[in-house]
Design a protein around this nucleic acid. Sequence first.
DNA 1: CCGATATACTTGAGATCGCAAGGAACTATA
DNA 2: TATAGTTCCTTGCGATCTCAAGTATATCGG
Lengths: 155, 155
Amino acid sequence: MATEPGVTAWIRFLRAHAAIARELSVRLETQHGLTLSDYDVLVQLYYAPEQRMRRVDIARTVLLTASGVTRLLEGLERAGLVEKQSCPDDARVTYAALTDAGRARFEAAQATHLADVEELFAAKYTAEERETLAELLGRLPLADTSSACTEEGAA
Amino acid sequence: MATEPGVTAWIRFLRAHAAIARELSVRLETQHGLTLSDYDVLVQLYYAPEQRMRRVDIARTVLLTASGVTRLLEGLERAGLVEKQSCPDDARVTYAALTDAGRARFEAAQATHLADVEELFAAKYTAEERETLAELLGRLPLADTSSACTEEGAA
DNA sequence: CCGATATACTTGAGATCGCAAGGAACTATA
DNA sequence: TATAGTTCCTTGCGATCTCAAGTATATCGG
């Protein structure tokens, strides 16, 4: 088989992601009516200053495209979990702000979701292994390889 | 922030997957006209006995649904990389078999793809770390948690 | 002040994938 | 053989996400 040295880890990475993400999404969906992506955005907003963010920044942290963020927020807005706010300094930006309902929904989801992550992921490891894993995964690229990086702080 | 101990690793896992999968897919697409999923199926077929597999088995190893496999193979069949073969023993199953074109296309893709995986993933680690990572990732669930596992070998 | 370029966001079209439902074939029981 | 249940595969529908293109605003050079 394709038992190349480095590829084994990558394949397991791919498979594990598919399996865990699917399961987490199903649970989140049935228990709280949220996608994994929805949840992901809600966390960002919850811990953001004033519980709001520019759409561009959401896109960057959650690793979605600008258009992806628009559609996703459409859903959250329809559900009343997030609302638009205009920015006085820059009329181009529209903040996505957590509503009271969004805050409540997130806090409810957070409890079960953390437990699910614990069960499906973290429980497989000792505290020490978790740190090792986090460190190793932290070395992986998180964004586009071409945009920045050539002259750090260029833009 | 959400600096819970076990969750950090999971978040990095999610982000890294999104970033790397996206980049690998783009390269595979532009250089060989293949999706990451397409490639994933082609590998399985390439190393399978007689270079063919039942659709169910493809679904299981690549972690797609049955319907997902049908659509994906539709594309590969249209491209002439894979062809249907009927099974004499069981008329329900349709084999997906690699064609000569498929073999050639895969071999071409394999070279650059392995290099890409090396660059974006494996290169971040020493040989020892790769093994550690592979071992750690190998503990994660690969499939549905409910089906088997209650009385191993039950079904 | 004015045009050129960049940035923030939205929208239309298309691809991928899952779920639910259905058809066809195999297996087991009687 | 007849009936029931399971397995393999396909299809209709909907959701998600990306790309390409378009609008609106901001900023910079002249």
